[in-house]
Amino acid sequence: MSDSPTIILFDGVCNLCNGFVQFVLEHDAGGQFRFAALQSGAGQGLLREYGLPAPTEPDSVVLLADGRAYTHSAAALGILARLSGRWATLARVGRWFPRPLRDAVYRLIARNRYRWFGRQESCWLPTPALKARFL
Rank of each mutant, 00 (worst) to 15 (best):
M1Q: 09
S2F: 14
D3P: 11
P5W: 02
I7K: 12
I8P: 04
L9C: 03
V13G: 02
C17G: 02
C17L: 13
C17F: 12
C17W: 08
N18Q: 14
G19N: 14
V21W: 01
V21N: 03
V24K: 03
V24E: 03
V24I: 14
E26W: 12
D28M: 10
G30F: 04
G31N: 13
G31D: 06
Q32M: 13
F33W: 00
F35L: 01
A36K: 04
S40K: 08
S40Y: 05
A42F: 04
G43I: 07
Q44F: 05
G45Y: 03
R48M: 05
G51V: 13
A54G: 10
A54D: 15
P55N: 04
S60Y: 04
V61F: 11
V61T: 13
L63G: 03
L64Y: 02
A65N: 04
G67H: 09
R68W: 08
T71L: 14
T71D: 00
H72E: 15
H72L: 13
S73R: 09
S73Y: 06
G78D: 06
L80C: 04
L80Y: 05
A81L: 09
A81G: 11
L83D: 01
S84H: 12
W87K: 04
A88P: 01
A88Q: 12
L90P: 02
A91K: 04
A91S: 13
R92P: 00
V93A: 13
V93H: 07
V93C: 07
V93P: 01
R95M: 14
R95E: 14
W96A: 15
W96C: 15
P98C: 07
P100H: 13
L101S: 12
D103N: 15
A104E: 05
V105S: 06
V105P: 04
V105Y: 08
I109W: 08
A110G: 01
R111D: 07
R111A: 14
Y114S: 03
R115F: 08
R119M: 11
Q120F: 08
Q120H: 15
W124S: 12
L125W: 00
T127I: 03
L130F: 07
K131F: 01
K131Q: 15
A132I: 05
A132Y: 03
R133Q: 10
